[in-house]
Amino acid sequence: MARRQARFTAQEMADDPRLRDHSPDLWREDLGKVQRGLLSSAVRCFAANGFHATTTRDIAEGVGLSPAALYVHFPSKELVLFEIIRVGHERVLAHVRDPSILAVDSSADRLRAIVSAYTVWHARHHVAARVCQMALNGLTAEHYGEIVELRHQTNGYIRGVVGRGVADGSFAQVDVARVTRAMLSLSIDLVRWYRLDGSDSPEELGEFYASLALKLVAR
């Protein structure tokens, strides 16, 4: 959601269907209820108003707490952002590395399964994923470096699947790096406009984007 000049209030964010996704399911089970609530509130705040325009008061108000409550659980606003972005990148990488996907032998079927899963994850968590992709400039240099490494792992994993298909003759002799970037960009771009109450379910969009990915490597 593009940031408006008028800031969203906590109530407006809670009521806006464009800011509803499955982000609350992302947080570690060992985190307490308040910590998980603060992270979910921060996702909405960062997506609606941007990281720099969001205050700790905004985040705390989203779960009915005083501004000082956030510092009990997170030393800084930047650490809240880092936790969201780190968890998002780790979860999507684990999702596309699911054993059921790794067990697929055919290069084409494996690529279809990966692109579908990657797309579905971004659709289900489109608000959190928007923060993961568009708020990187709010991280410290050290934290940004950690996220870049996770992104390299994801890109390298999918690039390896495309390269495998080129090598075994399943795919055309494409530029593996460029084609992989195009596939990833398709799935990531949906976070700008997707909403769960729209016309396409995450699964439908996943199948559609997977078909497009296979067309990019068709012989």
Rank of each mutant, 00 (worst) to 15 (best):
V120D: 04
S187Q: 12
D109M: 01
H143I: 02
S106H: 11
E61F: 01
H125E: 09
T154N: 05
R57G: 00
H73M: 08
H52T: 13
A68G: 14
F171A: 09
A135P: 00
K33H: 08
H22L: 13
L139G: 02
D189V: 00
R178F: 11
S40I: 02
E146L: 13
G145M: 06
S66G: 14
V131R: 05
S170Q: 05
D109V: 01
G138T: 03
Y194C: 04
Y194H: 03
S199D: 09
L19K: 06
R97I: 10
L150K: 03
R178L: 11
D98R: 12
V104Y: 04
E12I: 06
R112E: 00
P67F: 07
A213F: 08
D168R: 11
F171V: 11
I85T: 08
R44V: 05
F74G: 07
V92N: 09
I101T: 07
D105W: 12
L38I: 00
V166Y: 01
G64T: 09
E204V: 14
L212E: 01
P24F: 08
F46A: 05
G37Q: 02
S199V: 14
A167L: 05
G62A: 11
R110I: 14
R110C: 04
S211P: 00
S185M: 13
D21W: 06
L186D: 04
A48H: 00
L93G: 12
L139E: 07
V131H: 02
M134W: 09
E90Y: 04
A103H: 09
G50K: 05
L102I: 10
I158H: 11
L26T: 07
V127E: 03
Q5M: 12
